[in-house]
């Protein structure tokens, strides 16, 4: 048997590919280009998005090479990822979490019906949890990990030339 820590080093599980985004996302700011810490909150999803987030942390995506890290508390996060559709029973808890984010920060809405932004009064079922100004984008439906990664890269780096996310960066 090969020494355990060496097992798989030659397998090269990390994929080099382009992560194409479906829609536009607001860029958080130039200071996040090399480092983005995200905190993921389940605002009432049916657990499949929790599985998607777990899959996003798999070696195939290797988010650390882009400087994307998963924080353990909202106080350490730059971006809050909310997994919906939101449930009224979790509204107060989500609002309290949003209040704990340091500034500047953003919120990404994942997995619910698309809401009309940036008009502040059309947040749909997210009303009372988050301000529309803080929302940097949304990924409605059942996005795959690659789509979420594309969104995170876009939020981190912006859509400009030369900043388009390309896989395989170290």
């Amino acid at each position: 048997m090969v020494f355990w820590p060496f097992h798989g080093i030659a397998k090269r599980l990390t994929e080099r590919r382009r992560y194409e985004r479906r829609t536009e996302f607001r860029t958080l700011g130039p200071q996040f280009r090399r480092s983005l810490h995200i905190f993921v909150v389940d605002a009432g999803c049916d657990n499949s998005l929790n599985f998607t987030i777990a899959a996003l942390q798999a070696p195939q995506y290797n988010t650390h090479r882009f400087g994307i890290y998963f924080a353990d508390t909202p106080r350490h996060a730059d971006l809050l990822v909310l997994l919906g559709p939101p449930l009224p029973s979790l509204r107060e808890a989500v609002a309290a979490t949003v209040r704990q984010l340091p500034s500047p920060c953003g919120v990404l809405l994942v997995g619910q019906e698309k809401v009309d932004l940036p008009a502040t009064d059309t947040l749909g079922s997210w009303t009372g949890m988050v301000d529309a100004d803080a929302v940097v984008g949304q990924l409605p439906g059942d996005p795959a990990p690659a789509e979420i990664l594309a969104a995170l890269l876009s939020i981190q780096r912006g859509p400009g030339k030369g900043t388009h996310p390309v896989g395989g960066e170290r």
């Binding site: 798989g8 798999a58 195939q60």
Partner: peptide
């Protein structure tokens, strides 16, 4: 860490089969 990373890769592969 090593075991968890390999299992995560397998987990992602099994979800790709579902997809």
């Amino acid at each position: 860490k090593v075991l968890a990373a390999h299992l995560a890769a397998l987990f992602e592969e099994s979800l790709r089969i579902v997809e």
